[in-house]
Structures are given as C-alpha cells and as structure tokens.
Amino acid sequence: MPLDTSAYSLALLRVDGRRWNELRRIHAQIRTQAAADGSSYLEMGHTKVMCVVNGPSEPGPRRGATSGGGSGGGQSKNAEVAVNIVIAGFSSVDRKRRGRGDKHILELQSTISQALAASLHTHLFPHSTINISLHVLSQDGSLLAALINAATLACVDAGIPMTDYVAACTAGSTSTYAANDEGADPLLDMNHQEEQELPGLTVATLGDSDRVAVLVCESRVQVSRLEGMLAVGVDGCKQVREILDRVVREKGIKMIQEGTVERGVGLNDMELD
C-alpha cells in the first residue's frame, strides 16, 4: 500500500522522503533546440516540460487580408505574448483526452502569457508576437510552476530583454481544511500525490523580490494558513531563481569556452572555470 500524506506527523518526512522545506531535484537545460530562437528543458522531480520560444517576430501576411480587425500583436504598441501548451497523452497515469478548448489549459496559457508579459520588455517590440510553445512530457505535480520556469529560461535563451527571472514553485500545508490544526506545517514543492490530498498554492515571484506575479490556489484552506504557505512559497521561488540563474550562467560559460559566442566586452576578468 502506498504511503499517504497523513503519515507526515510521525517522522516529519513526506511521502517521497523530503523534509518540509526541501525542493525536489530541479534539472534544467537551455538551448536544446537548434532551430528555435530560444528553448529549454526543465525537470522538477518527475514533472518534465519542454519550451520553445520563437520571436519576437512580425506577423506574416494575414489570411483574407481584410485588415482593421485581428487580435493582439498586429496593431498594439506592445508585443503580444502568445502561449501554447500541449499536454502529451502519456504525461500522466490516466490518459486523458483534452480538446482544443479545454478551459484548464486556456487558463494556464493566459496565466503564463500575462505573467511573462509583465517581466518581458514587450514595449521594445511593437506590432510583433513572441510565441512560446510548451510541451508537457510528464506530470507529477507543480505543473504550472514548471511551465513558468521553463518559459522564463527559454525567454532568456531567446535573448528577449526582461526585468528579471519569473521563478515559480508550489507550497502546501500538511493538514486538510477539515482538521483545524493550528500546528500544521507548510510544505514546499508539492508532488502529485500531495497535490491531490493536501491544500496548496502556486506562487511565482519576480527575481529576488517578494513581489508575487502569479498566485493560484485551487483548494479549500483556512485563511490563517495562507501566510505560512505564501512565505514558504516565496522563499522557494528565490531558491528556484538561484537554480535557474546557475543554469544560464553555466551554459554561457560553456558557450564562451567552446567559442560559440564571443566573450563580451568587460567579461575578460570573469572567472571561467
């Protein structure tokens, strides 16, 4: 029989053996697709996502050239951030067919698009579109967080100017809403099983600050728990940001060493080890 999350109070260990404040292993790569402007691959535990960014590019000739209408990029002063998410059928245990109009996916797309639009300097690219396409290969909780992190990395790789990293992670609370247990511990980075059984939320913050770009909570939880969960989540986002930053820097150093890119001006004194 699998362990369930109620065993936490016995040893203060979670179902996968982590403590309350431990992230799962995050492994990330950037520039995985040579053809794209920017790309990334990210694993948070067993959640695996791939991201490809194309753009900013001006839209091609429209079908049925009746201009004047048309949504987004074409007319506006800011670049449009268009996000497309594909959840692979084999990504979770039960193979679920999701149509094109699935509201959950549409909501995720709009969230990611608006979160990144606030960090990317979209005003530099009027009348153009930044296409972000995300592929979910495997799901084990914290899906939205993984998608945001992957999209951020791919945008960095694409070289689109942005204020700072948008880093995301999830936080939960050890007891369900029914048990009005004041001593409930907050948990960092929930996996699928914890997401099913415990209340939780997804937070994304901008860079090092405490400023929250995305906050999504979809479960019932006492209002008094929110503060603890949010604090742990924001702290987790800072850890995630460090990890993402390290990935970008390591890739940069590697590219300089391989001679793929020129060493930039003022980087001569930088340690390349």
């Binding site: 606030a118 405490d210 770009a213 999504v216 979809e218 006492q222 929110l226 503060e227 604090a231």
Partner: peptide, 29 residues
C-alpha cells in the same frame, strides 16, 4: 474566494504586474 467561516476556496492572480506578498495578505483579510 472565501466563505464566511474564513476558508479560502480559491485565489487567482493570473499574471500581471507583480504585487508585494504582504499586500496580498492584507487584501485577503
């Protein structure tokens, strides 16, 4: 979304400009 027993049913800040975490807590209360 809350009920009068002080249970959060849902929170949705779907992107947009980042806001201080403390301000969000005040908004909730």
């Amino acid at each position: 979304s809350l009920n009068r027993h002080g249970e959060i049913c849902q929170i949705a800040k779907l992107g947009g400009v980042p806001v201080e975490a403390v301000a969000l807590l005040q908004c909730t209360s």
